[in-house]
Design a protein around this nucleic acid. Structure first.
Lengths: 121, 121
DNA sequence: CAGTTCGTACGATAGTCATCGTAGTACGAG
DNA sequence: CTCGTACTACGATGACTATCGTACGAACTG
């Protein structure tokens, strides 16, 4: 294997949309699923990248893979392989340039709604 | 018909979700369709209420009715009958209380994207 | 009343989506 | 090389969705 083509730690690569290809409708659709919105909130909370398997979602692994793919293909997250793990990170910069403030307001709104619905006690 | 129960000009009434019933996922989903996003942008542009038929959408009347229903049931717009016309208005106040800034950032983002994609000349 | 306009309801259809289980691939450790 | 872990690919399925056409209802205009 030629050393010229050695990404960080793996030969596997994942398709990501260019910044210019990200569409608002796609992003909104990606965020309109409760499972994916939860993922995005968790990602935003840690400010870094997260392994796929740290998310404790009430669905099967296949379904989890599906949701991460939707998030990646809509341009919301960036995914890279790091050994056997696949790390996920929000594309904060790209989203901020394309849709200023959008991510923030959605995350805030999700937080408000969670307080309103989940902690009425 | 008793005079006590006479709405503005019609006996027809439409179901709307309570403010407390509006869900973020539902709103995002409603906005994730290009047709509906266009409707919301148009509504936001005029600051008032708009007749259903002033929207020049490239779909049939039945489909238009469908999209307006989705917007109404998700809590994005309020609809009232005024004679034969059905007027539509954004539920700005409710959305602002529930999800502060969200509507604004989405509309701004839609505007940016429209400029970026539609008017590159 | 008759006619027109505006919107609804219903049924149909083709497409997308969230979900699953199973089988498989990629990588690191022993 | 073998094993375990992490994630994927594939096929299936049931649910939802966007779309249409046609037929109907409600209100205004004569």
């Amino acid at each position: 294997m030629p050393a010229q083509n050695r990404p960080s730690s793996s030969g596997r690569s994942l398709e990501h949309p260019d910044r210019a290809e990200i569409r608002l409708e796609g992003v909104l659709h990606a965020l309109s699923d409760p499972m994916r919105l939860q993922i995005v909130c968790d990602l935003a909370a840690v400010e870094g990248e997260l392994n796929c398997s740290v998310f404790d979602l009430p669905v099967s692994k296949s379904t989890t893979t599906h949701h991460f793919r939707v998030l990646r293909e809509s341009g919301v997250v960036r995914q890279i392989y790091r050994g056997t793990a696949k790390m996920n990170a929000l594309r904060r910069d790209d989203l901020e340039v394309l849709f200023p403030g959008l991510l923030g307001t959605v995350l805030t709104a999700a937080g408000h709604q969670a307080s309103r619905l989940g902690a009425p006690a």
